[in-house]
């Protein structure tokens, strides 16, 4: 079985905090990490490889430093990887990202199963997996939380839904995105760490894959960010007085104002 796991390097958002005085993000010393959900994708891929045999490649798009996440995947047991790095890829929305990733999957020789984490913690869009499946013209099952059966022709998986879960048979080649429940990531291995140290990550740019610069990156994106702003947050501690009913309403208003609670606008 040929397995490709897509991984992304992201800032460690869990450790990003708001500066209570300036209301801006404090980012000093924020490390770049492998997107946590992609670790579950990698674990799912390693388990599939254990059951069905074959090889596992990791695919990433990002700046040259993102080679680190591919090396990290090798520490966990991936057989190899490919980094798509090119200034032309910068600023990509999910449409342009899937254009590059689909070319990357083809450059790796295609796959029986493509696995993505359910979303990246910096963007939280959850759109790349399904978009990539469409680009590749293969069926998909998103939010997979477990495997029931694995063979060369199909996977039977459990798909998490809001009201429970579905048991779904996915013919191969196909794409899945996975959630946390798919299995706790294993630790890296010593042999993997030693391999990763020496591993030279192959890198391809847009032209290497026959992509026009206008199809990828910001130029190839349909959406455009027009404004970025910090949610209003009060760093102060505040005791809300008055009658209980007033205080209750007031605290909701404060939280809405601070965009902690979302209500329509």
């Amino acid at each position: 079985m040929k397995i490709i796991v897509c991984v992304k390097q992201v800032p460690d958002t869990a450790n990003v905090k708001l500066d209570p005085e300036t209301h801006t993000l404090k980012r000093e010393g924020v490390a770049s990490i492998i997107n946590p959900f992609d670790l579950f994708a990698l674990e799912a891929g390693l388990r599939l490889r254990e059951q069905a045999g074959g090889e596992l490649q990791v695919l990433s798009m990002g700046p040259p430093q993102a080679a680190e996440v591919i090396k990290q995947a090798i520490e966990f047991g991936a057989d190899g990887g490919l980094l798509l790095a090119d200034r032309a890829f910068a600023g990509a929305d999910t449409w342009a990202t899937t254009a590059a990733l689909a070319a990357g999957v083809k450059a790796l020789g295609g796959a029986d199963v493509v696995i993505c984490g359910k979303q990246a913690v910096d963007g939280d869009t959850a759109q790349v997996g399904p978009g990539l499946a469409m680009r590749l013209g293969i069926p998909q099952v998103a939010f997979v939380k477990g495997f029931r059966e694995v063979d060369g022709q199909s996977l039977v998986v459990e798909r998490q839904m809001d009201d429970g879960f579905d048991v779904v048979k996915l013919p191969l080649p196909g794409l899945i995105t996975v959630v946390r429940e798919v299995g706790e990531p294993r630790p890296p291995s010593l042999k993997g760490k030693m391999r990763a140290k020496k591993y030279q990550v192959p890198v391809k740019g847009a032209a290497d894959m026959g992509l026009d610069a206008a199809q990828v990156g910001l130029a190839g994106s349909y959406t455009q960010v027009v404004e970025v702003f910090a949610p209003q947050a009060s760093g102060e501690r505040e005791m809300l007085g008055g009658a209980p009913a007033e205080a209750g309403a007031a605290v909701i208003d404060r939280l809405v104002q601070a965009k902690v609670i979302m209500v329509g606008s």
């Binding site: 759109q127 399904p130 939010f143 809001d162 959406t223």
Partner: peptide, 23 residues
């Protein structure tokens, strides 16, 4: 879960942009 699985595929199929999880 259903919308976030299906709609990115549709947006790609009709070649347009999509913004996730708007508030």
């Amino acid at each position: 879960s259903l919308g976030r699985s299906l709609i990115p595929r549709v947006a790609t199929a009709v070649s347009t942009g999509l913004t996730a999880d708007c508030t």
